[in-house]
Design a binder for these strands. Structure first.
Lengths: 130, 130
DNA sequence: CCGAATCCCAAGCGATACTG
DNA sequence: CAGTATCGCTTGGGATTCGG
């Protein structure tokens, strides 16, 4: 196991000198309603603004704007505007953005693997509680 | 690469038959302010209610209660209560909870690895924008 | 010590209308 | 098409109080 990896060994205080192992940093960026959906879509390739909106059902124009801007600000995506009529703007992930997409995909893997078990646990819990 | 893994290959439509590869499911559970912090703490071992609260600076009693309850409901943690005076309650991760802790630790790894690059990107962006 | 109940505020988000 | 501006609702979560 790489030295860089966060240990989760039971009973140890852990190597996290800080409070939260930095996990909040990334969650503050992808924990919102739309960011990961945009990342996942951009991981498939270059997309125009409208393409993104059509590919992500339910997202409003406003939220797509703020989400793409945040991605660009954090260096996870890049924006390319062409001065055509009508305007045309392309978004694509940066290398760092692609690496985040990879990490996110792993989390999605976990989710699908345990989806049923969690649903079962919920049913049992809800059944056993007034 | 495992068949179960979500592909992020550019230009492909991807194997996600559903909308979001299931990524929203897990983010709806760990995307809130406190859940991952509790998971990370419980990954270190069994903890009592008060121990958790002291270990997680800033969390209120109420939020710790709702967070632990959600974890128990989803089968990620277990609660053991002893009828002593004063009461004593222990929380511990289930095997599924530990596997989630592992996945979360990987995301934390990514976060620490790219923290500086993202801070730089922000500074550049903020500098270049009115 | 552990948790439930209530009140309240602020952030996040959606809807809509407007601009280049 | 792409983005901005404004308003209003909904929700997360903090503070406090009460109960077992």
């Amino acid at each position: 196991m790489s030295v860089a990896h966060t240990e989760v060994t039971p009973q140890a205080e852990g190597p996290c000198g800080d409070d939260d192992c930095g996990i909040r940093d990334v969650l503050d960026r992808i924990g919102d309603k739309w960011t990961v959906l945009v990342i996942v879509e951009l991981a498939k390739g270059v997309r125009r603004f409208r393409e993104l909106q059509r590919a992500i059902p339910g997202i409003s124009q406003r939220m797509l704007t703020v989400t793409t801007q945040r991605l660009c600000r954090d260096g996870l995506a890049e924006r390319t505007a062409y001065a055509t009529i009508p305007p045309q703007v392309e978004y694509r992930l940066t290398p760092m953005g692609r690496s985040l997409a990879e990490a996110v995909a792993r989390l999605a893997d976990w989710s699908r693997e345990h989806k049923d078990a969690m649903a079962d646990a919920r049913e049992r819990w809800d059944g056993a509680h007034p």
